[in-house]
Write a protein that binds this DNA or RNA. Structure first.
Lengths: 238, 238
DNA sequence: ACCTGAACACCGTTCAAGT
DNA sequence: ACCTGAACACCGTTCAAGT
């Protein structure tokens, strides 16, 4: 009865057999808890209750681990809802991408810096591409819109998350304006004139990050809507 | 005559006295040439023709070096042109930010991941904030627009640059579509169905990066223009 | 045949030992 | 008083020596 044997091993705690999946999950846990810099192959091994070098048996090296963690993150992207129209779909998509950054602030750089295209990301891109084409856009234009929107969501997410600074801080949204100002002050050079501090404060500390993202999203979608209407008109004329 | 002494030292090559500036410049050169991962305090020291530990005398540690390199990059941002109206100003700003990423693909992550706000960045933010207010927007709305646009430009830049992959590759724009496809294939999981590959190709390989950035920028600016008109109308009604 | 863990060539940073 | 460079506590990765 092999299942019993597996069960038994599982009871021993960390002694369950290693899988690529288990390695990636442990790595993500380390990063979530203590930051990207805390992730080392040795620490990963001990986190798994295993000889550190045993990890190499399941994974090609540290780069492969980082790619794997990025894959896990993309796996948390909510799938596209076929019931939504293209605009609601793109809204959900952008919010979903931003959510990945917010849920995993320490791991977030991996989303943009490891060039992996896991299936959940591809499925979403495909679905929204189709929705835009159905709304009257040709493929190149639809692709540009997806790429721009993705850039916006990822750039916004990464910028928000790096404002947070070191591991252990609470989310930027949950900070008071005063805390945000202090946090921002770390990034300011000394002896900066007051009007420049005010400008930085307006953009980084006083600016409500949720409202800012939503308004940027709406500006963009309004532009897309205009393009779609144009596309439909052109299609009807044909 | 101290100037002669300095001149003499300069002739000895790398033996000129260390400055924070010189340290940062050497660090940027290393990163530009061989990538972020190649930058170590030891390598930095030898690049400067100096005992590696001497660097610590001028700089707090590696984090300070990375912040300094980020500062150098922001220093290359073209200053805002007072003669431009708000729309041209924002266009130039976004293109200028993207240019930083493209000129320094290996150092680019520092622009978004080190939370420094050097003067050139602050001056630009201030100038465009003022321009938007003059165009009829209140400060919170203007700040949201700057922040969104900056997120878009940085997200676009970083995504483009990480698509490039390892140090030594030429720019994405200079690659043929075929090369781009191959590059993208590295990021694809195996056994992905064809329609998903097509979607990825549309967004990453076939999509002209220049046209995509420009069209995203225009979509966004069109939205801002509508908001400005609204703001002006409200102001006149008051 | 398999897996462990010693060993290699690196890190960032400190600090005592020399001048 | 100053600066060098040895030393410490880590890395990622390999591979031979054991079972």
């Amino acid at each position: 009865m092999p299942e019993a044997a597996i069960e038994e091993r599982r009871d021993e705690g960390e002694r369950a057999p290693l899988t690529r999946e288990r390695v990636f999950e442990a790595a993500l846990a380390v990063v979530d808890d203590d930051g990207l810099e805390a992730l080392s192959m040795r620490r990963l091994g001990t986190a798994l209750g295993v000889d550190p070098m045993a990890v190499y048996r399941h994974v090609d090296g540290k780069d492969a681990v980082l790619d794997g963690v990025a894959g896990l993150l993309w796996g948390e992207l909510p799938p596209a809802d076929a019931g939504e129209d293209w605009a609601d779909g793109l809204r959900s998509f952008a919010r979903g991408v931003l959510g990945l950054f917010r849920r995993h602030p320490h791991a977030a750089p991996l989303l943009i810096q490891r060039f992996v295209l896991p299936r959940p990301a591809l499925e979403a891109v495909h679905a929204h591409l189709e929705a835009l084409r159905a709304a009257g856009l040709d493929e190149p234009r639809a692709a540009q819109i997806i790429r721009s929107l993705l850039s916006f969501a990822m750039g916004y997410g990464l910028a928000e998350v790096t404002c947070l600074g070191e591991p252990g801080l609470d989310g930027w949204e949950r900070m008071s304006e005063r805390e945000r100002l202090l946090c921002m002050a770390r990034g300011l050079p000394e002896g900066v004139p007051g009007h420049l501090i005010d400008a930085a404060a307006a953009v980084y500390a006083e600016c409500d990050p949720e409202a800012c993202f939503e308004s940027g999203l709406e500006l963009f979608l309004a532009g897309v809507r205009a393009q779609c209407a144009e596309g439909m008109r052109a299609r009807r004329a044909r």
